[in-house]
Amino acid sequence: MPKAQETILEIDLKALKHNFEYLKSQTKPGTKLLAVVKAFAYGSDANEIANYLQELGVDYFAVAYIHEGIALRQAGITKPILVLHPQAVNFKLLIDHCLEPSIYSTKILNEFIEIATKEKQTHYPVHIKFNTGLNRLGFAENNVDYLISKLKETTSIKVASIFSHLAASEDLTEKAFTLNQIQSFKNISEDFIPMLGYKPILHICNTSGILNYPEAHFDMIRTGIGLYGFGNSEKENKHFKPIATLKTIISQIHTIEKGQSIGYNRAYKSDAQMKTATLPIGHADGIGRQYGKGKGFVTIHGQRAPIIGNVCMDMIMVNITNIDCKEGDEVIVFGPDSTAEQLAEQVHTISYELITAISQRVKRVFLK
């Protein structure tokens, strides 16, 4: 593949296909797969990713907010799109673009029924979210009777699915908690469906849930981070291929004498002669200041070069004293070999935060 000549995020669609097919292989025939493409498809490119997944036969998409779903519709996505955290102010736009809301509270339920009725909708698909332990969004188990009574009062909406979200499916020391969540969801479903009078789709599993709790796949699985190449453990990661490689180049090389400082606030002072490389990427591109002062690193010709001094808005400086390189050479910030997860661990965060932070000003290049 060609070497980078500027800062780019290279996205490998073959790796995406591999991850999609692996996740599908872990389910029983007929189990639907919902692809989570919120936050620009976890920092990559939602339109390209969603269109490719649509070609591969994904059943559903999910985004966080309504404007993300509208962008997908405008990009040619025709599959159903679940909006996980819709805001009532945008409900008419949601209906105009055939998006499907998560209904997670009494307020949201009543406001959506009101707008759906006003817009003369019949059996508009909605998804009822239950809180089984994450304590973030969702109805409680004792809200079932109230929900049924509200649903029986209107023909403007119809339940497409009921779902919940696992809080710690990647942590097997919390297995008892997760199994309790799954049992709670089963109990809710067994109460809800007979009173509803028809069977909606049931789903609770995220990526780690898919792999660790196959008995809880129900009718559909939801996957976000797995599609983009990460599990949530070393065991899971072996099955995935990271789809994104963040590349940049060396803009300039400096020889720094003993006692000289580097960067803003003189955050690094050399205790011996050294060589540094300045790279055209900084905190405005998603490499936060927490990666500076020797905590983060990049890879040049297979060798790690620590980030020194403070990360600037548009640049970082790295120590190349023991690396044979020149101006214009390619630099890997993260990729399949030196992963976003490994870099994120240096500052005690997770791959999700790093990859979703990559700025939209970074050029996306797709390998097809």
Rank of each mutant, 00 (worst) to 15 (best):
D171M: 14
C205P: 02
I162E: 03
F130G: 02
G288P: 03
K238V: 15
T223L: 11
I201T: 14
F40R: 12
K241V: 15
R364Y: 11
G286E: 12
V298Y: 01
Y104G: 06
G259K: 13
A116N: 07
H203S: 13
N51H: 06
K363T: 12
G43N: 10
G209N: 02
N187T: 05
T31S: 09
K175C: 12
L343N: 06
K175P: 09
K326N: 13
C312H: 03
G133V: 01
K28H: 11
S44L: 05
F230N: 01
T223I: 11
K152S: 10
G197D: 07
K158Y: 08
Q87I: 13
G294P: 12
I350A: 11
Y198I: 01
E68I: 03
F20T: 00
L137C: 06
V37L: 04
L147E: 01
A116C: 05
A267W: 02
E10M: 06
E190Y: 00
S351A: 14
E119L: 00
N47T: 05
L99N: 04
I262D: 06
Q360K: 14
T207R: 04
K238A: 04
F297I: 08
T7M: 10
I70S: 06
E341T: 15
Q252N: 13
I316V: 10
T132A: 07
A15W: 00
L109Q: 07
K175L: 05
K235Q: 15
E68D: 09
S44A: 09
H283N: 04
L34S: 01
K175T: 15
L367Y: 02
V144K: 03
G259D: 04
F218E: 12
E236V: 14
N232M: 13
A357R: 15
G231P: 15
Y60V: 08
G229I: 03
K107G: 06
V159S: 03
G292R: 05
Y60K: 04
F91Q: 06
S25Q: 04
L227G: 01
N142Y: 07
M220Q: 14
K32F: 11
A277S: 11
E327G: 02
P86V: 09
L33W: 02
K120L: 04
E141V: 05
T122Y: 00
K14V: 11
K269M: 11
G335V: 02
V144Q: 05
M195Q: 15
H123G: 09
P336D: 08
G57T: 03
F366T: 13
D171P: 12
I11W: 01
G286L: 05
G288N: 10
L56Q: 08
M220C: 11
T248C: 07
I95L: 03
Y104C: 07
T278W: 09
E215I: 03
H254N: 14
T245K: 15
P80L: 07
V318C: 03
M195D: 08
F185S: 06
G226H: 07
A176P: 08
G69R: 10
G259A: 00
E257F: 14
I316M: 08
T178N: 08
I115C: 07
F163M: 08
K28Y: 01
P194K: 00
C205A: 15
